[in-house]
Amino acid sequence: MEKNAKIYIAGHRGMVGSAIHRKLRALGFDNLLLRTSDKLDLRNQQAVADFFAAEQPEYVFLAAAKVGGILANNALRADFLYDNLAIQNNVVHQAYVHGVKKLLFLGSSCIYPKLAPQPIKEEYLLTGLLEPTNEPYAIAKIAGIKLCEAYHDQYGCNFISVMPTNLYGYHDNYHPEHSHVLPALLLRLHEAKAANQPTVTVWGSGKPMREFLFADDLADACVFLMGSYDDPQLVNVGTGEDLSIKELAYLIKSIVGYEGELVFDPSKPDGTPRKLMDVSKLQALGWHHTTSLEMGVRLVYEDFLASCSGQ
């Protein structure tokens, strides 16, 4: 990408979009198109068409999505399917209509079968049943991948798809019911410490294995792939390392400084038993993550404390 290229970051206020925004700014890209959802509703077909016609972006990072944890995914199934289909359909199609040079579509590791062999290779897509609790979100993201592939095959569009593993970072969602496991644990342990609670209950058995990637590392990978990867076949982005939810909980407990006990509730859903990404394809291209989980969680907790004190 040229330093003066007009780049649209869809979803620049979210955790991933804001990380991409920071990365591009740091690299000297200053012709960035940014619109909040109250100014541009990406679910609105005409609004997106008008935006692309007026602004004519050259590159697009499609990081906008409706996201949430197990509870939100399962409770808001229609919203997760409709909103995400609408967002990506509108943006991808208008990128084609207006001759965008390159588009990067961000998916999720939940696209893969619940019982996929580990670590998960890109070719395992659509080889088995999905995890039921986040099936609507996963189906929408699979449709986005296939949409990018189809526009490449039919129209020659340079649209690529990136599948990140579980993410955490600045501007994460700390909603008490709709957040992902890492920020949910961070919030609950922080609140338990403040209230001197003797115990904290953690959903599930603690046995599932999860991989976590710092969002700023993902942003670095996305910018790297925008400059070096032109294949419509999706590419995984992760660390290639995982740990159990129990290990994660005790890591966060240590970083927050909570001195009570953790109690695991096996009556609550565990979700997928293991989700470890095979990142050999990305590493062969020359990219590796640089932020350890402990360092990343410390950075995020410092940011969380700063945002709390600023309220």
Rank of each mutant, 00 (worst) to 15 (best):
G11A: 06
R13G: 08
G17S: 06
A19H: 04
D30H: 07
N31E: 12
S37R: 15
L42F: 03
R43D: 00
Q45F: 00
F52Q: 05
E55G: 14
Y59F: 14
V60I: 12
F61P: 04
A65M: 04
K66G: 01
G68Y: 10
F80I: 04
D83E: 10
A86H: 00
I120W: 06
K121M: 09
P132A: 08
N134Q: 13
A143H: 09
G144W: 00
K146W: 09
E149I: 02
A150N: 11
G156I: 12
C157I: 11
M163F: 08
M163L: 15
G169S: 08
E177A: 15
H178K: 14
H180W: 04
A184T: 07
L185Q: 06
L187K: 14
L189P: 10
A195T: 15
Q197L: 15
T199F: 09
S205L: 12
P208N: 12
R210E: 01
G227H: 06
S228C: 15
L243I: 06
Y250M: 02
K253Y: 03
V256P: 01
V256Q: 02
E261H: 09
F264G: 01
P266C: 10
S267D: 13
T272G: 05
R274D: 08
M277T: 03
S280A: 13
S280T: 14
K281I: 05
G286R: 13
L293T: 09
V300R: 05
D303F: 14
Q311F: 10
